[in-house]
Design a binder for these strands. Structure first.
Lengths: 216, 216
DNA sequence: CAATCAATCCAGTAATTGTTAGAATGTACA
DNA sequence: TGTACATTCTAACAATTACTGGATTGATTG
């Protein structure tokens, strides 16, 4: 049956549409941003450092792969993940890449040296400490992202406001800062800032996507 | 910091290597074949209906993304998955695609009409029936694949030998046939053959990768 | 050692994709 | 109604990728 070949080719071709959607670095960055919550094209473009035209083109690809949906609100178009499984997929993709690619492991060290990052196995104990108030879990992303989803017990102080609001934080307990995930530099900057001011600050690698908390 | 942009770009670039590896239909088919066990280039090429040159080129991409490993044995080079997480990734990718892409759902109906396929929730009850011997679970893949990994209680009769060995199967109990996964046509053909000879035959969609049984 | 076989490497072409610039759409607001 | 703004669409070009044919490597076999 030559026909069987044609059927099979069609099936893999469809699955490959997903693969193609995640084969571009910029599209991955857009997906990670969308894991933090709904955003307009303009915001997505700005936060991923590309032009709006290019962002629009990439978002079109993602939409055609049905990985994202859009919603119009006045002049703006808001993009969001089509399904929370897309966030799970992003997490699996990047964690597989971190497992398999030595180059990526090396590059990640530039963001957070091993001793200062908490490993995933610390999750329960971190939450226990946070519940008891022994540590402060700090969300340094823009406030809209915090409102969309955040870690349990987390407090929101966006990095941009941190310098001005630093007095809100206690000096006698460790501050555990997190942001969008392992490739986001906000938490690193926050930790550097806090340490410079005498705080005991730690950098949590994972964000809401890695914790499985993304809401759509 | 412009430097931050460069670091981030590098990180997403690395993750995108994984995406690029799974952005081609043929590479996906090769991955699925490798989920069934180690294979030579020649076998991979034949089973995916492409030339050895092209198979070699695609396998090179997969190897450079560290998704597969190779082993030399005399004149032959055997490829295998680098990690069983690669199989999990393949399963997640295709099941996400099945969720999100209506076209794929439609195309899948050509292989197995809804009533004759067993859904994943039937797993435990299927295994219970298989243990008691109320149904026969039949692996119709080539025997090497069966030897590499197979479903619990499964019996091996490769599709090619099924016609000649059909008498080994009981007529008084349902036969549940499976093959490489949802995109493989072996089980469908087996079911058609069995039904034509008066057997009660069912087509199980999932293969060893979907059951999480892949060994590397 | 020559011959054979499996697999890869290399070069070239056709097709696809990323990116940018310019025109067009659709909504809000004066 | 006209203007401003966010976004998309179209067209174009450069860069990348898929595939093919011919030459090459490495291992086996006579």
């Amino acid at each position: 049956m030559k026909n069987a070949r044609i059927v099979k080719d069609g099936l893999y071709e469809q699955v490959a549409r997903m693969g193609k959607a995640v084969s571009s670095p910029k599209r991955l960055e857009l997906i990670e941003l969308l894991c933090q919550g709904e955003k307009t094209v303009e915001r997505l473009a700005r936060e991923s450092s590309i032009s709006m035209k290019l962002a629009s083109a990439h978002l079109r690809e993602l939409r055609e792969a049905h990985l994202v949906d859009t919603r119009r609100d006045g002049k703006n178009i808001h993009y969001r993940l089509a399904d929370s499984r897309v966030a799970d997929f992003w997490v699996m993709l990047h964690s597989l890449a971190e497992d398999r690619l030595a180059e990526l492991q090396v590059a990640l060290k530039q963001i957070a040296a091993s001793p200062e990052e908490l490993v995933p196995s610390d999750r329960e104990s971190l939450m226990k400490s946070a519940r008891k108030g022994e540590v402060v879990v700090l969300d340094v992303r823009p406030v809209e992202e915090y409102l969309s989803a955040h870690l349990p017990f987390a407090r929101s102080i966006p990095l941009e406001e941190l310098q001005g609001r630093i007095a809100e934080l206690p000096l006698d307990r460790p501050i555990v800062a997190y942001c969008r995930g392992p490739y986001c530099l906000l938490a690193k900057d926050a930790v550097d800032l806090l340490r410079g001011q005498g705080y005991e600050a730690l950098h949590l690698r994972d964000g809401v996507a890695e914790w499985g908390l993304v809401s759509v």
